[in-house]
Simulated assay, not measured.
Amino acid sequence: MPRRLSLLVILLAALAAVAPSMTVGTNVAATTAAPVTTDNPLAGRTWGVYRGKAELSWEPYVRAVGQRKGLLAKIALQPKSKWFGDWIGDDEIARKVRDYVASATGGDPEVLVPMTVFRMMPWEQEACTRLPTKVEKASYRRWITRFAGALGDTHTFMVLQPDGPFARCAPGGSKVPARMVAWAARTFAALPHTHVYLDAGAADWLRVDDAVQLLVDLGVEHVRGFALNTTHYDATSSQITYGAEVVAGLADRGLPGKHFVVDTTQNGRPFTHAQWEARPLGQPFDDAATCRTPTGRRCVTLGIPPTADVTTAAWGLSSRVRALAAEHVDGFVWTGRPWLHQQSQPFDLGRALAVARTTPYQ
C-alpha cells in the first residue's frame, strides 16, 4: 500500500486554513489578486489547473490550433474540479489523487486544488431501489480512507457527492447512504487544509426546508458548508438567494455560519429543470441544448469563470444579490462538465466549441 499520513495525524489536524482573496487566471494555476481581510478559505490563494489526460478537454486543447485552440482554452485553462468516483479502484485511488495534486499544484504546496468526490454506490436512480451491500460499504470506507491519506495536507476545496438529494430516496426512508456520506465528510474535514462543501442540489430542485434537513443528515455540522447547481443550469442569482435561505435554516437548527459555493460552469444563459421539461428538444437533461449564438436564451453555455471574487459588478448581479454573496458565498466554482457527453464522457468537441463560443463571460 502506498505510504500516507497516519489517520491519527489526520484526525487530530485543524479543520481549516484561512487566507486572503483571489481572482482566476489562465496558466498552470490561476493568478492571485491583492489579499483582503476575509475568513473565506478559498480567497487569497491560487487555484490549481490540472493538465493531464484525466481532464478530457486537455488533450483536444493541446492538439488544437488557431481559433479552435483559443476557444478550447476557455475550458482547459480554467481551474476545474476533477471527479473521483467508483471507476477508480480502491487500490488505485491514492496514486490517482497524488498524481492529480502534483499536476494541479505544479509542485507549489500553497496552491488550492479543486476536487469532486462522487463515490457512493448505489447512487442516482439506483439509490432509490436498494441500499449499499456490506461489501460496498467496506469498499467505500477503504476508498475514502486512502483518498484522505493521499490528500494529506494539500490545500483543497471539495464538493462531496454531487446530486446529494438522492440520499433522500433510499428505500424505506433509510439514512444509511446519508450516514456514509456524513462519515466521509468528517474524514475529509479532519484534514488540515481541506474545505468540504456537501452537494445540496440546486434552487430548482429541493424546497429550502428539505435542503436543510438533507444537509443535517449529510453531516454539514462537520464541514465548511454546501454546494449548489453542480448538475443544473439555474441562474447564479437564484442559487445565491436560495442558498442564503438554506444558511438561515441551518442557523435555526443550531448550525450558524455555514457558507456555500455555486457551480457556474454551464449557466451562462440559465434555465430551470422545469423549463427544460417544457421544451426538452429531444435531448436528455444532462445533454441539454447548447447555445447557438451569444444572445441565445435558455441554453447551455459557460457561466462566470471560477473565482472567489463573487461581488464584482462584472457578473451582472443585483446589489442585493451581491450583498448576500459577500456574506455567504465562498466562490463560484466549475464542477459541472457541459463539454462532455451527458456531463460524464466522452469529450464532445461540438458541445465544447459551442459553450466556449457563446459564453457571455469570456
Rank of each mutant, 00 (worst) to 15 (best):
D287F: 09
S57G: 02
L206A: 09
P165A: 00
A64S: 13
T290Y: 07
Q161F: 10
I144S: 08
P109D: 08
F226G: 07
V208C: 03
R142K: 10
T133L: 03
W276Q: 02
Q266V: 00
G225D: 10
F147C: 08
M158P: 04
D90Q: 07
T241E: 13
W334P: 09
P132M: 02
Y242C: 07
G303T: 06
F226S: 01
D286L: 14
V159R: 11
P114W: 04
I75Y: 03
A251M: 11
D287P: 01
V329F: 12
G52Y: 09
G254S: 04
F285G: 10
S318C: 04
M1C: 11
S318G: 12
E124R: 01
V176W: 02
G66N: 05
A182P: 01
R130G: 00
P284C: 00
V113W: 06
W143C: 04
A16E: 15
V159L: 09
R4T: 06
K80W: 11
V310K: 00
D86P: 07
T335K: 04
A73Q: 04
K69P: 02
L71G: 11
I10F: 01
T32K: 13
L198F: 08
H273M: 12
V113M: 09
D263Q: 12
D163S: 04
A30D: 14
T129Q: 12
R269C: 14
K175C: 11
P114Y: 02
A76P: 05
G268H: 04
N40Q: 11
A235K: 07
V246S: 02
V208M: 05
K134D: 13
Y361I: 07
